[in-house]
Amino acid sequence: MSTPIPAAGTLPWRRRRGQLEVALVHRPKYDDWSWAKGKLDPGEPWPVAAVRETVEETSLEVGLGRPLPGASYTVLDGAGQPATKEVRYWAAEVTRPPGPLTNEVDEVRWLDVVAASDRLDYARDREQLRALVRADHAGTLTTWPLALVRHAHAVGRGSWPGEDPLRPLSAAGRDRAAQLGALLAAYAVRRLVSSPSVRCTDTVRPYAALRGIPLRTKDGLSEEGYEADPTRAGRHLERLLERGVPSALCSHGPVLPDLLARLCDRVDDTEPDAGATRAVLREAAAEKMAKGEALVVHLAGTGAGARVVAVERHLP
Rank of each mutant, 00 (worst) to 15 (best):
R150Y: 02
P47E: 01
A92M: 11
V25R: 10
L68W: 13
R134L: 13
Q128W: 10
A115W: 09
A7G: 14
G43E: 09
L295F: 05
V114Y: 14
G303A: 01
C200S: 05
R96A: 07
P196L: 02
A23D: 11
A186V: 11
A177S: 09
R150G: 01
L260W: 03
P230F: 06
D202H: 15
R130S: 02
S251D: 06
A261D: 14
D125S: 11
M289I: 04
E57T: 07
L11W: 12
Q179E: 14
Y122D: 05
L295Y: 07
T140M: 10
R66T: 09
A185T: 13
R199L: 01
R134S: 14
A123D: 10
G65A: 06
P165Y: 05
S194N: 02
A178F: 12
S170R: 12
T10A: 12
P168M: 04
L169D: 10
T140V: 13
G78T: 04
E56T: 03
A185P: 08
P145E: 05
A290L: 15
G43A: 06
E57Q: 14
P206F: 03
V297E: 06
L60E: 12
V113E: 14
T201P: 11
R14Q: 15
R307Q: 15
D121A: 08
L24C: 02
D273H: 04
R119S: 02
V255I: 13
Q19D: 13
C264D: 13
D136H: 14
P67R: 03
W90C: 02
V155S: 14
L148V: 01
E104K: 15
V267M: 07
R134Q: 15
P145I: 03
Y122N: 05
V22Y: 15
E312I: 01
R216T: 13
E86I: 07
T201S: 04
L184I: 08
P196F: 01
A248Y: 08
